[in-house]
Design a protein around this nucleic acid. Structure first.
Lengths: 196, 196
DNA sequence: TATTTGTGACAGTCAATACTGACATATGAT
DNA sequence: ATCATATGTCAGTATTGACTGTCACAAATA
């Protein structure tokens, strides 16, 4: 009915590639395996992408969820520290989970994907800017202790980055602590620490 | 003079392997490259280790710094929250840095090294146990608010795990914030959050 | 000096893998 | 029905990479 048969197969291949490479790394997966997983022939893979390298790069550009962060929080921050930190940290994990596979690939390959690292750190950086700006304003409002907003923001982000990385690595997470409990605890801690 | 010529070459090879694999991953490095980097012949590599797989496993066992954590803190904790958290977090980064290359390899390869993940998480787990025990005692002493010590300990560890991972990944860390400043900030935050 | 031990050089095996070309086949559009 | 487009099949190339065997050489040891 529609003429996007080509796009569909391209997508299938890219999705299969991402799936496999996230587990075994770029060099750990063959083009044959990717094609099999996509239910297509290896030849088709090369017809679409020309090279394995290009396949990964294209896949990354296509499926890297790169929303403008700033707009996500427009009007959503109510300047209640606890509530806002909760919103921010939930959004953070939401975005990171959305890009989970790509992040896993990026962790493994610094060499096969030049320039990937910058893309991957864009979200966290944006978010950190938003958070430190927010903390600065809150400080001016007298709702947060006057200190170094950057340092505070970094600390908060690092905590969640750590939790996320821990989650990603242990396929069977035995930490026995749910992500949501952790998020709430982090908010409690920071609220108590930063409230004057 | 001494008969450890054999051990010396073995070590050279293992060190070269660790160095290269930390950057490019297990599949990203050939035995030829490893031998070259070690200044030896490929044949020697196989004479010593039999297989590439075994080389990595042996290297891991040999160079994985796995100190008994408990003894490191015997008598060192003075039950001043700020001071003790500082000691613990510094020790954490010290140990992680000591195992830096191996951790980098472990992040990339879940598949080529079965059982590696457990070894790698031993330190953090031990440390977390120590910290949560410590917080429980502090709580009983009335020096820390009564809450969930495990959750508090996890939060603290996650923060430092995140900082460490961030450090490892960005070869050129543009975060413009020094590790020591971060450590101090983390202690400040938690001290303020946990003190009654 | 004679012997053992560790290493190098070289040639080679065998399997995997990225990638290509030629031809046939299916599917949708006109 | 025809035609263009997208895919499959099959056979093949070239390279790489893990790993082996053989012989020669150097150094420590006895």
């Amino acid at each position: 009915m529609n003429g996007n048969r080509k796009q569909d197969t391209s997508d299938k291949i890219m999705i299969a590639a991402i799936e496999l490479m996230a587990e075994r790394g770029y060099n750990g997966v063959s083009t044959q395996e990717i094609a099999d997983a996509a239910g297509l022939s290896e030849k088709t893979l090369f017809r679409h992408f020309g090279s394995k390298q290009n396949l990964l790069e294209t896949a990354f550009d296509r499926f890297h969820y790169a929303e403008e962060m700033r707009s996500l929080f427009e009007g959503k921050l109510v300047f209640d520290l606890s509530q806002d930190l909760l919103l921010i940290s939930r959004k953070y994990h939401e975005i990171m989970n959305h890009n989970r596979k790509l992040i896993q690939i990026g962790m493994k390959e610094q060499v096969n994907l030049p320039g990937l690292h910058e893309k991957m750190q864009k979200h966290p950086q944006q978010l950190m800017k938003i958070l430190s700006d927010y903390l600065r304003v809150m400080s001016e409002k007298g709702k947060v202790i006057a200190a170094n907003p950057e340092l505070q923001a970094v600390s908060f982000m690092m905590m969640h980055f750590g939790a996320y990385m821990n989650d990603i690595q242990s396929s069977a997470d035995f930490s026995s602590i749910s992500l949501d409990d952790f998020i709430k605890e982090s908010v409690t801690i920071f609220t108590r620490a930063l409230t004057p």
